[in-house]
Amino acid sequence: MYQMFLGGALRVKAAALAGGAWSKQWRRWAPVAVLVGLCIIIGLFNPNFFGGANFVRMLNTAAIPLVICMGVTFVILMGSIDLSAEGVIAICAVAASMLVANDFTGIAIGLFSVPAAILIGSLVGLLNGFIHVKFRIPSFMTTLGMGFAGIGLATAILGGVMVRISDSSFRDYLSLGRVFDIPAAVYIAGVAVIVAYVIQERTRIGRWVYAIGTDEATARNAGIPVDRTRIIVFGIAGAFYGLAGALSAAQIGRGHALISQDRLFTAITAIVVGGTALSGGVGSVLNSVIGVFIVIVLTNGMVLMGIEPYVQKGVQGLLIIAAVALALDRSRLDVVK
């Protein structure tokens, strides 16, 4: 009988799909439309928006959120959530800043600190995934605890002080140096997006993420190692946080525990606004790229229009609510917790 319900529900859904092709297309392209619309509106209010310098500024601001979002997107596509980004980034930023020439430790391994940060990030991510899968604790709890622990660890290592980075080539290569007037961080973020896209489209893990996010039981039946995939995906997310940590340290030239403050909130806003569904299976890292630019353009626009910066968080909160409410496929869930 239960199967009959499923059958019935599916058939209804199929009918809705046939009739809703247009609305489906609209949904797919809505984030792009929103981005273009925003640019036009802000440009009308303030012509400075379209200046080259402003574009470079926005690209630079977008770099680190882009890298973070590449990680979080995979976890959300899988139907889970990762709230640990800030903590992991803090650990990795502190680690990276302590591994290059600095005023805190005697170590100076230069650019090797980048793979080191990525490695540390992915290890913490794997730990996230391991605890979540093996102890069967919901991901939001695991990663919430882990995120707090990460910030605590970063603070504890430094005892509340900051590490100053004296390795200027590290900062140049990762963030400040410019090619064609565009900062290095933007190129690195671009590479991160390409890597994420290749993982998503051209690897088994990438495809399995969608399968698990859409219907875990079917994925299991098809022989997909669901538990292992989940752990690996949290590890991949951690690797992106590691890179984001190194970029953050290079950008401000310091490492400290609060370096990633508010990053998570922005990342989730961007992903959700970009059209990736929290229920899993729907969306893409490219959606998140659009989402990041929506958030950045909006923030930039508000600054240009002279709106107080503290309002931004409120606007992001409203954006999350609006985007999720518009995009959520309510037929899929009857009990929401």
């Binding site: 599916l10 399968a211 994925a219 997909i224």
Partner: peptide, 25 residues
């Protein structure tokens, strides 16, 4: 299956070979 096990978010090809992608690697 009576209740379809085709995943709507994957392509036709991906559905057919789900879990058996090795040969295309």
């Amino acid at each position: 299956f009576q209740e379809q096990s085709v995943l709507p978010t994957l392509t036709v090809a991906e559905n057919i070979f789900l879990g058996r992608e090795e040969e295309f690697l």
